[in-house]
């Protein structure tokens, strides 16, 4: 059953060079109980997009939002700030990259947790405290009664992220958005947090959107992957399909450029020449945004933008006039091995 049905979401930011189209006509659906990995490099619009779902941008920075965001049948795009509050927290939770900036440094952890519970669920002080202890235990924090009295700085980075996850889950939201939840953490701690998110998602059957630049993170946590480039989704499909058989040349090139721990030392890394185009609307070319860097680009790619569509090979969507075929994957694999 579809929980989130987003269509044609476009987000414009103001800038000195003119309006910037950070998110450019993104459409996707997410079923209940599914985890979507949203990947892309910096400036691809992945964070801007998930924040647009929640209307979380500062009003002064956003020039315009377009599109429809159906969450459980209600169009969030039509709601004002007051009505959105019924969604922020109770129905959609969010975890940010740096828990130090999302937690209040001068308020004890206990109060930050119970505040949410009391505001949204109307629990009294005692019930909120009990629930807070339950939540901390659930996210793997030892000795929760004592830890409720601690301040954020008394926790390590991994523990802070666990607290931030506990707060996001306090009201048992149907959708959890995690924006680079492990980027600031060390790898041994990252594995712990990903295992925690996986467990919670399974136990609660909630939907999750994990935003990350790291395809390795996505491979371990997501059912499906959407790849963003220059504000657009350029490929979307089951994680195994996208990671093992990418159709969009950008996805293929991105995967090839990741150094592999199981590849031999001193192997040459395939690179993508150039860089992502400017998203300032005035500079916007008509064609495929990846065309200037793409090895397969033709004249058509420069003038005509390919839509995100499926072909008869499978249920993967991609935006490309000259998609990679199973045969063209062989050279990519060879390059990585050489």
């Amino acid at each position: 059953m579809t929980l989130l049905d987003v269509s044609d979401v476009t987000t414009w930011f103001g800038s000195k060079q003119g309006p910037v189209r950070a998110v450019d006509g993104v459409s996707l659906q997410l079923d209940r109980g599914r985890t979507l990995g949203l990947v892309g490099e910096s400036g691809s619009g992945k964070s801007a997009f998930v924040r647009s779902i929640m209307r979380l941008h500062h009003p002064a920075s956003v020039a315009r939002y377009d599109g429809r965001i159906l969450f459980d049948g209600t169009d969030l795009a039509q709601l004002g700030a007051r009505d959105l509050r019924a969604y922020w927290g109770p129905r959609i939770g969010i975890v940010f990259q740096n828990p130090m900036t999302s937690l209040n440094p001068v308020v004890r952890i206990g109060r930050q947790l119970t505040e949410t519970l009391r505001a949204h669920l109307g629990l009294d002080r005692r019930a909120a405290r009990e629930r807070a202890i339950e939540l901390l235990t659930w996210v793997g924090i030892a000795d929760p009664e004592r830890r409720l009295r601690a301040y954020p700085h008394e926790f390590s980075g991994g523990m802070r992220q666990r607290v931030a996850i506990a707060i996001a889950l306090a009201c048992e939201p149907e959708l959890l958005i995690a924006d680079e939840p492990t980027t600031a953490l060390d790898v041994t701690v990252q594995t712990q947090i990903l295992a925690l998110l996986n467990r919670i998602q399974r136990e609660r059957g909630m939907s999750m959107i994990v935003v990350t630049h790291d395809l390795g993170v996505v491979a371990g946590i997501a059912d499906e992957v959407a790849v963003m480039y220059a504000g657009r989704i350029v490929e979307h499909g089951a994680t195994a399909d996208v990671v093992e058989r990418p159709r969009m040349p950008y996805t293929g090139a991105l995967l090839a450029s990741i150094p592999r721990i199981d590849a031999p030392s001193q192997s040459r890394l395939p690179t993508i020449p150039g860089r992502m185009p400017s998203l300032v609307a005035a500079d916007g070319a008509r064609g495929c945004p990846f065309a200037p860097r793409c090895a397969h680009a033709t004249d058509r790619c420069v003038v005509e933008q390919p839509p995100l569509a499926q072909d008869d090979h499978g249920d993967q969507s991609f935006a490309c006039w000259h998609p990679l075929t199973p045969a063209s994957h062989a050279p990519v694999a060879q390059e990585m091995e050489s």
């Binding site: 041994t188 390795g216 592999r260």
Partner: peptide, 16 residues
């Protein structure tokens, strides 16, 4: 063991 790999595997692995 903690380094992310591009292998699609959601089986419950205990953190290293």
């Amino acid at each position: 063991d903690s380094s992310p790999r591009l292998r699609v595997d959601r089986s419950e692995v205990a953190p290293a």
